[in-house]
């Protein structure tokens, strides 16, 4: 039978194409246009050339927000990935406890980000919050509104609480897909628990872990709502991450030009990292023969 060859299927892609055009491409083009101009409102623009880019590339404010962002993402990845794997390894494999633990693990993921922020904002307060009050009663000087270290600890703990279950659930899915035969072979070889983890479980989880790291990196790199609700970027600028700084610039100061240039540079970094992860992931899949 001869195969019919036509290009009509492209029409099926048209709705998505239109949707992406209006939700991403056209706004992105507008941001590029803004980034080279200045405005004082009223939709009137004046050509500024590369001024905003030059200014921002030499701006202490941008580089320190970028530094804080990298440190934040690195810390939460360093905690959440091993912790998530550890939790997944210790979750029940079958039966009613397995279902129960899956539901419990999924719970934090269902809570909206601003609610998570509010929960931790109250939880950490010294006057009425359980955590803040308890720590104060123990004689520990903890106040996230004036101590940068306390603010960082609160935000990192909050993120770990909120997102470790995502890594755990993904790792759990990876672990469940390992055939029993591998464990039996390891048993015959009298492999230690560590060897089973290192030579069987970890390599088999590589794909899902890569996805977990990518998702957590992207999310943490764009984090806005939770730190904004808890600390508002403070004390001082201690927890002002890139997106908080960007919103301050765009909406607080209404500096549309610099904010547009800022967001494009931010976008480029996100795109670069996503591309690296995507490439590594697809190469891993190819090696694994999917």
């Amino acid at each position: 039978m001869e195969k019919t060859l036509n290009q009509k299927a492209w029409f099926l892609v048209l709705p998505v194409f239109l949707l992406v055009a209006f939700s991403a491409v056209i706004p992105l083009m507008t941001v590029v246009n803004y980034s080279l101009q200045d405005t004082f409102g009223n939709n009137k623009f004046f050509w500024a050339g590369l001024e905003w880019y030059t200014e921002l590339l030499h701006s202490e404010r941008l580089w320190s927000a970028f530094g804080r962002q990298i440190i934040f993402s690195a810390i939460i990845l360093a905690i959440e990935v091993p912790l998530g794997v550890f939790v997944a390894l210790n979750m029940p494999k079958k039966g009613v406890w397995a279902s129960l633990s899956l539901v419990l693990m999924a719970l934090p993921l269902l809570i909206p980000w601003n609610v998570v922020g509010t929960i931790w904002q109250i939880f950490g307060r010294v006057d009425i919050g359980l955590l803040g009050h308890t720590l104060a009663a123990l004689g520990i000087d903890y106040n996230y509104t004036r101590d940068p270290l306390a603010a960082w600890v609160t935000i990192i703990t909050m993120d770990v609480w909120h997102w470790t279950s995502l890594v755990a659930l993904l790792s759990y899915a990876g672990l469940q897909s390992i055939p029993e035969a591998y464990y039996q072979a390891a048993k015959i070889d009298q492999a230690s628990r560590w060897s089973v983890f290192w030579f069987i479980e970890l390599p088999k989880m590589q794909g899902v872990l890569m996805i977990a790291i990518l998702i957590r990196f992207m999310d943490s790199f764009m984090i806005y709502t939770e730190p904004f609700v808890v600390t508002g970027g403070g004390p001082g600028n201690a927890t002002t991450f890139l997106s908080i700084d960007l919103v301050k610039m765009a909406l607080g100061q209404f500096d549309l030009g610099p904010a547009a240039a800022f967001s494009l540079m931010y976008f480029l970094v996100v795109m670069l990292v996503s591309w690296v992860f995507y490439t590594v992931m697809t190469n891993l899949d190819k090696k694994a023969g999917y």
């Binding site: 056209i26 083009m29 507008t30 590029v32 246009n33 803004y34 080279l36 101009q37 939709n43 623009f45």
Partner: peptide, 15 residues
């Protein structure tokens, strides 16, 4: 299209 604040250089860039 006025709201997109087009300029000749950016139009050339995207073209």
């Amino acid at each position: 299209m006025g709201w997109m604040a087009w300029t000749l250089p950016t139009a050339i860039f995207f073209a």
